[in-house]
Simulated scan of single mutants.
Amino acid sequence: MSGVRLILKDHQWERMEPHLPGKRSDPGRTGADNRLFPEAVLWLARTGSPWRDLPAFFGNWNSAFVRFSRWSKDGVWDRLFAMMANDPDFEYVMIDSTIVRAHQHAAGKKGGPEARAIGRSRGGLTTKIHAIVDALGNPLRFILTPGQASDYTEAEALIADIPAEHVLADKGYDSGAFRDAIHAQDAVPVIPPRKTSPQVPCDYALYCERNLIERFLQKIKHFRRIATRYDQTPRAFLSILCLVSAFIWTK
Rank of each mutant, 00 (worst) to 15 (best):
S2P: 07
G3Q: 04
I7W: 00
Q12P: 00
E14D: 13
H19I: 13
L20A: 00
D26R: 00
G28N: 05
R29L: 12
R29E: 12
T30P: 13
A32M: 03
N34W: 00
F37M: 08
E39A: 03
T47K: 08
T47C: 02
S49I: 02
R52S: 10
L54N: 08
F57E: 09
F58P: 08
F58D: 01
G59D: 07
N60E: 11
W61H: 07
V66S: 05
V76R: 03
W77F: 15
W77L: 11
W77A: 11
R79G: 11
L80N: 10
A82L: 14
N86W: 11
P88H: 05
Y92L: 01
I95E: 05
T98Q: 10
I99H: 14
R101L: 10
Q104I: 14
G108M: 04
K109T: 14
E114N: 02
G119M: 00
S121T: 08
G123R: 10
H130Q: 08
H130N: 04
A135G: 00
P139W: 07
I143F: 08
T145C: 07
G147N: 02
A149W: 05
S150H: 15
D151G: 07
T153I: 12
L158P: 01
A160T: 01
I162L: 08
G172E: 01
D174L: 04
D180L: 15
I182T: 00
H183K: 08
H183C: 06
H183W: 15
Q185T: 09
I191V: 14
T196V: 09
P201D: 14
P201H: 10
D203F: 00
Y204I: 11
Y207M: 09
C208Q: 15
C208R: 15
R215L: 03
Q218W: 04
K219R: 13
I220Y: 01
I220W: 02
R224M: 02
R225L: 12
A227C: 03
Y230A: 02
Q232K: 11
F237K: 02
C242K: 04
L243Q: 01
L243C: 01
V244A: 05
V244D: 04
V244N: 07
W249G: 01
T250Q: 08
K251F: 07
